[in-house]
Computed example of a mutant assay.
Amino acid sequence: MRDVLSCMTNNIISRVTIGRTYNEGESGIAVKGLLQELLALLGTFNIGEYIPWLKWVNKINGLDSRVKKVAKDLDAFLDSVIEERVIRNNKGEYSTGEAKDFVDVLLEIQNGKETGFTLQRDSLKAILLVI
């Protein structure tokens, strides 16, 4: 039951923010496994955060390498999502009745001058991670 509810929640959130669901096999990155690894790392005890002079232990137990791998994979996934949407917007592949998702709104803010500030691609990725 936990897996079904987790899958449903992930599908709803990704459909609202990214515009579609990303199941394994649809993209080069297994998004479900990536999110599970991210959540596992968030719950992992990081001794270097509590006792800074023992930060070297994270290299031995592999925590640093796991964090770097997840960060790299997540960055590549979000970059591919944003790039896919930029290409889609440039080609004008939207139908008139199609609703815009959160990435489209962020790209409109990035391209528009009415906000008074600029959004860089890293800022877009950070906002998507928070959402």
Rank of each mutant, 00 (worst) to 15 (best):
7 C>N: 15
8 M>Q: 15
8 M>R: 15
10 N>F: 12
11 N>H: 08
12 I>Q: 08
12 I>E: 09
14 S>L: 06
16 V>P: 06
18 I>Q: 13
20 R>K: 12
21 T>E: 13
21 T>R: 14
21 T>M: 09
24 E>W: 02
25 G>M: 05
26 E>G: 06
29 I>Q: 04
29 I>M: 08
32 K>L: 10
32 K>F: 05
33 G>R: 02
34 L>R: 00
35 L>M: 10
36 Q>Y: 14
37 E>K: 04
38 L>A: 09
40 A>K: 14
42 L>Q: 01
48 G>V: 00
49 E>M: 03
50 Y>S: 10
52 P>M: 07
53 W>I: 01
56 W>N: 07
57 V>T: 04
58 N>Y: 10
64 D>F: 05
66 R>G: 01
70 V>Q: 09
70 V>R: 03
71 A>D: 12
72 K>P: 04
74 L>C: 01
82 I>P: 01
84 E>D: 14
84 E>C: 05
87 I>F: 01
87 I>S: 10
88 R>N: 06
88 R>W: 09
89 N>Q: 08
89 N>S: 11
90 N>S: 13
91 K>V: 11
97 G>H: 13
98 E>C: 03
102 F>Y: 00
104 D>N: 04
110 Q>T: 00
116 G>H: 03
117 F>N: 14
119 L>P: 08
120 Q>C: 15
123 S>F: 02
130 V>W: 12
130 V>C: 07
